[in-house]
Amino acid sequence: MGFLALQSLTKRYGDFSAVQDLDLSVGKGEFVSLLGPSGCGKTTTLQMIAGLVEPTSGKIMLDGRDLTHEKPNKRGLGIVFQSYALFPHLSVAENVAFGLEMRKVNRAARDARVKDVLALVRLTGMEDRYPRALSGGQRQRVAVARALVIAPPVLLLDEPLSNLDAKLREEMQFELSRIQRSTGTTTIMVTHDQAEALSISDRVVVMEAGRMTQVDAPYRLYENPATAFISSFVGKMNRLDGVWRQGGADIRGVQLPCAPSEMSENTPTTFAIRPEKIALCATGSGQIDGTITNAFFLGDAWLLHVETAAGMVAVSMPNRGEEPARAGMAVGLSWPPFALRAEGPAERPS
């Protein structure tokens, strides 16, 4: 059993299940993300761990101790709220010292700890500022420092980066990951941003409508999404409906090689391939030919829409400094064998 274990954790509001039978075991020092669309129960899960929402049923165990009915002020977990929830009437140093003060740590030790933690989050020199005089990123770091200073066994982060602009957000992701590694604190982060979840966590928990649908390392999650929902929620995906035939795909009469699957012969099947797995090549030399209908420039990459006999396929290719293709060009598409996967039975037979 892990360091932090959730056992069939459930929260119901009337007839509505916000979280349903969640089972999760988190190892010591691990960084786990809860990923899912809005309203799927991520915040509810986090707040149950924090003790701010009472579970309807199930258990929360921390290091062998049953936390389920413990009051939030007795749990000793560190929490960073989505809104940061800093104390606006206290300075940065006083905000960070609050948790230590509640633990009756003496003045000298407190000041030393606060100084260390502020250095860790790179806020040295800001001790006497008030939260309203800080930027969004600085506020977030104060919130992290305030949660870390009590040396919590578990750090809970509720969409800590959602209020930041794209650049700061990326910086803070690496900052968070650096802090987490240097303190070795077990961390659970809620996010609805798949890139954030993939980039900094050891494992990603995907939630859908109150249920956990997949728990995996970021790379494996991306490569082997368990459901059609996950494959479209995590990264981009081309989806083509066809039939499983002779150990491969038959999409509108086009035979394509496909990763092995347990589909039975002639089952209507949805096939999926990631846009970045496809490369352009000369017509006739790839798996299929087509015509570019749209070319979108994204800065670091091109996104091409290619009309083929099997349907519309999105292709993404890195920007290498030359204009690769224009709308109207005839191209061939090639991909490594097995990049095309049978995702499951087609919703409607083709």
Partner: peptide
């Protein structure tokens, strides 16, 4: 007042009265 601010104080170990 952001209700999360009071919740934050609780999670940092303050009693409801504190």
């Amino acid at each position: 007042l952001d209700p999360a601010v009071e919740a934050a104080a609780l999670t940092l170990g303050a009693s409801p009265f504190t």
